[in-house]
Design a binder for these strands. Structure first.
Lengths: 395, 395
DNA sequence: TAATTGTTAGCCGATTTGCCAATCACCTGA
DNA sequence: TCAGGTGATTGGCAAATCGGCTAACAATTA
């Protein structure tokens, strides 16, 4: 409900913004296409495109042939107009997995550089580490400093956007209040921070099974913890202090007061999966190995999956009762390892437990979902900043 | 992100919409006030106001005196430009409570007519009943038929806006597919339908404790069932098929399969409260009577409240883990009866059970919250329709 | 006298309509 | 097979229109 008011300058800004927005959602468009999309007249479209190309935001990328008349010019957003960087930070695990994965993409989303490294944040300051990583990305891609306008951070923890503070984070040094503004200051860019699970949901929305859903809940089954991301029509629900989806801490009801406290983490966390594997004679030293082994021999591990699915359904049933999502996505290493076998088991368990019917699916993203999601999030931030800057420069 | 494009006509429409919007949020404004609010120049404001008064949407309601210069004209939205009606429908209970409560308000929100009646929908067609009720409201308020542009319905059930069908509804006749469009056809107005709990949340947002929250979850403790409404920055979360917040069906985890299936309704529904009262020697034949009796004698009923609060906390903990709301509102007859005593007990129970900290509050709405919320929802619908109609008429 | 209100006149900026030249695909006919 | 005509399409230019802004001004009240 844009209760915006203004004069003709506002109109021009709006029209240019609209045109740029159409060119940004990857489309190579001719003037005629833009006319149909914006309902503006030919002279106006010409003027708008002239300004956008002058500003270096839009280029002619080809000519349309095969139809009567002169070859129409095809316009597209200039890939090099701005870049977005993404950094996914994990705690150094027992495995040799890298603790920092970073990438840099251009305005069209094409990845221009990618880095993996193993930084021990016990001995490295987060700020300098991040500045170095971004510099390395820029060097690898050959991109000048000023063109990187947004750096998106993904961490395993919840980000309180109001307080600009990361909470519930395991990686040393990242929980310090005031860190994020300092990083932004040091980098000279905007810095966005988000939960890794939320970013995986962003990737799922843009390129996964969530593409056409009007909303979905993504349950992340990680090596250690679990998390939930809530997508409502493309916007993520973050909660008051960024704590939405921290269902690992969800306490479970114990009918008898014999209760020692049990929460969902105790039920489907990494330790629980290990124990469950032992109970059912499934080999493996890490949760991931257990699930992989089980998935490799579904006939023998049927009961393992049934039990695991029942537990997952406990959490999902609560989520579904509260949110009624049209789609539930299972993601994270454990869910990927479980694959279709796990999916079938969870679907069955949910049908027994949950009142409402939601479709369940497994993620279709093979690559590092968190990193991809961070790139996507950073990219949309850059695009919106571009659109807004046009609006403001002219107004 | 208004990727709107257009010509100067769009500009005029936007400016008039903006001015009208400012005049609608109850403000009596002078031209100077509007100039500050919209940043438009004096001649433009004059022109806009001239058009709005010509269209009968805005009136001069007074003159500002006491300052040098001519007395400035004070403008306000014309209360009689449009009306909204609201109808709250319940099943006929054992008590003699009316099953239909309806009201009609003008554009400023002032209630012009109110009706309560006891309609047995076993023997009355919903459509004709509603048409009659609305006609009666119009007659009582002396309002011509054409000026009522929106009728908002509140029912105890979930409304699937996509299928235009009411689900999980107890009132006979209201579950029939196609009913809502028929009603709209018969009434000749737009018809909005929503869950009663959702509407109570709307009222809470506009005039209750949720006024300044950036989001809240409202737990409705009714005579029979319970429900949840989720407000995110003023928008209600409805879910895929309108089923969000149906937490009565939320299954509870049973560690051993020895337990039969238990859901939250079994724990804090009306029957459960009755039983809990009996266990603790609290008298009363209905859940409401039990809680009222307990609230009247807090010293004796301390344990009753502790137990009840523990059970409520089970559901709330799940909600909080999923949503992380900044505020949780307890509403509905049971919650109102429990008052501050119940609030204190729930706060304590949550502190023990829930991981995240959310403020808990009891509703501050004494009147029929569902009806008030329906009025509010209808009113905003009418206002947005007015604003949009200006946008379209001129474009 | 000074401040404030609201109107009028002239200007500016942006878009649209209408017109035109240029280009290219396709068809026809030699 | 090739030349030329036809028609659709592209993109530019000029005039007209529309809406808002600035500036000047008359009117009113403390």
């Amino acid at each position: 409900m844009p209760r915006l008011a203004g004069s003709s300058k506002l109109l021009r800004a709006m029209n240019e913004s609209a045109a740029l927005a159409h060119l940004l959602e990857p489309g190579m468009l001719t003037r005629a296409d833009l006319r149909k999309l914006t309902a503006l007249s030919t002279p106006t479209i010409s003027e708008v495109l002239r300004r956008l190309t002058d500003a270096g935001l839009v280029n002619v990328v080809g000519y349309n042939s095969g139809r009567p008349g002169p070859n129409a010019e095809i316009y597209a957003a200039n890939p090099d107009a701005a870049y977005a960087a993404a950094v996914s930070v994990r705690d150094i695990g027992a495995s040799g997995a890298p603790s920092v994965v970073a990438a840099l993409c251009d305005l069209t989303g094409a990845v221009r550089a990618r880095i993996e490294s193993r930084i021990d944040f016990l001995h490295t300051d987060p700020k300098t580490a991040l500045v170095d990583v971004v510099a390395e990305l820029r060097a690898e891609a050959g991109v000048p400093e000023t063109r990187v306008s947004h750096v998106q951070l993904g961490v395993a923890g919840s980000y309180d956007g109001g307080a600009e503070t990361i909470r519930h984070v395991d990686v040393p040094g990242f929980g310090r209040p005031g860190l994020v503004p300092e990083i932004a200051e040091a980098l000279g860019t905007h810095v966005g921070v988000d939960n890794d699970v939320n970013l995986a949901a962003v990737a799922e929305r843009r390129r996964g099974v969530g593409r056409d859903a009007d909303g979905f809940a993504l349950l992340w089954l990680g090596q250690e913890g679990l998390g939930l991301a809530i997508d409502i029509g493309g916007t993520l629900l973050r909660g008051a202090r960024g704590g939405a989806g921290e269902i690992g801490y969800m306490p479970l009801y114990a009918p008898d007061s014999t209760h020692r406290k049990v929460d969902l983490q105790d039920l489907v966390g990494g330790a629980a999966i290990l124990a469950l594997g032992q109970d059912h004679g499934v080999p493996g030293r890490t949760p991931l190995e257990v699930v992989l082994a089980a998935a490799g021999d579904p006939a023998a591990a049927g009961e393992f999956f049934t039990h695991l699915a029942d537990r997952i359904a406990v959490g999902l049933a609560a989520v579904i009762a509260v949110l009624d999502p049209s789609l539930v996505v299972l993601a994270g290493p454990v869910a990927q390892a479980g694959g279709q076998t796990l999916l079938a088991a969870v679907t069955g368990a949910l049908r027994r437990a949950a009142p409402l019917e939601s479709t369940v699916a497994v993620t279709t993203i093979d690559d590092d979902a968190v990193l991809l999601g961070a790139l996507d999030a950073g990219l949309t931030a850059v695009r919106e900043a571009l659109i807004a800057s046009i609006r403001d420069n002219q107004a």
